[in-house]
Amino acid sequence: MASSLETIDLPHLPSLPVHVAVYQNVQNAAFLKSQLLAGQPEYEYAFIDASMVLSRAHVIAAVFRALNDYAHNRLKSHNVHSEIVFSLNPTNNIAESFRRFGISDSTQDLLVIKVSTSSEITHDTVAAHLSSAVEGTSVSFDDQTLFEFSDINKIKKSYKLGALPSPTKATDQVASKENVETKQRLENALLGAIALRGS
């Protein structure tokens, strides 16, 4: 099955392209997690449970922070991919960040990120490996898809944002202005938490 892998270049780090794919109805999350934990080099990705992500901006903020730390030799975890998962966490607890945001055996909707830390890692090699490694349906990396997957209550609990109102998942395509603003407020709070976490 063709992957809808997207490659993103962050303006200040053009030498480190970032490849992002999203899958739904993943059947082999336990296998992927076991390969990651075993330190298999070909499974060195940021595997993120998509239910813990609100939007593209939420993901990009964590990637930006991790790449910045990677570029300045400030990683707190094993590699740039584990650092992306860690960067989503509002606290400095690395183990907690994997429990909250990382892949679990029961993950169904999965966000996968790979950074081109070497010239061998290209859009094509990542797309080819993921299409054979992940048993799930490839979907696009966009706000609408991510919002459908997101577990708002779990996200708010992890970031201690219980006081903020929750955006609702409108059944029709037309989201109300109020709901858009509610989602924007939540997203801004998440971005702030990532940016301001103790370094």
Rank of each mutant, 00 (worst) to 15 (best):
I94E: 08
A61N: 09
R74H: 14
K177C: 04
A195V: 04
A2L: 14
F147Y: 13
N179P: 01
D69R: 13
P90Y: 09
V59Y: 05
P17Y: 06
S15N: 12
H78S: 10
E135K: 11
A66R: 02
A133E: 01
G102N: 12
K157S: 13
Q27G: 15
F86G: 00
M52H: 06
S116H: 00
I84L: 02
S138T: 04
T168R: 13
E135L: 14
S3V: 10
V139R: 05
A128Q: 12
S55R: 04
S3E: 08
E148F: 01
E148H: 04
H129P: 00
K33W: 04
K169M: 08
H12Q: 15
A95T: 00
V139S: 04
L54D: 03
S4A: 11
I84Y: 01
E96I: 02
A163M: 07
N73R: 07
E187P: 02
I194K: 04
L36M: 12
A71I: 00
A189E: 04
D143T: 02
E178K: 13
L75E: 12
T182F: 01
L54W: 05
R185K: 14
A128F: 06
L196Y: 08
A163V: 03
A193P: 10
D105M: 14
G192L: 03
A193T: 03
I48W: 00
M52S: 14
